[in-house]
Amino acid sequence: MIDTIIGHYNYWVVILLMMAGFYTVINRGNLIKKIAGLNIFQTSVFLLYISIGYVNEGTTPIIAEGFTRYANPLPHVLILTAIVVGVSTTALGLALVVRIKRAYGTIEEDEIHDKDMSL
């Protein structure tokens, strides 16, 4: 039981963070806040991947004399790519928010919906 907790607390806290982001995305009506939530979700997924690549007593995967045990470099490479793709999607999402503000005059989801209905 104790072993399970010590071996998994990292994953559980990361899942808690993920769910905090998810909750922000589905419950909050403000579009900027939704994007902040999406970013939290995304960062938590990065943390999950890096957790899986971690090795006890290991070091950063830079080959040097005197070290034999390294962390897994492959999740690091994946996540480097994902961070850059993530900022691209964030930029695009925020551009959509600006465009919505110009078209509707609001960035609250409920008000946008009301305006759509009143047409």
Partner: peptide, 8 residues
């Protein structure tokens, strides 16, 4: 950094 992913 703690999880040995300096580049990330």
């Amino acid at each position: 950094v703690v999880m040995d992913a300096a580049d990330v």
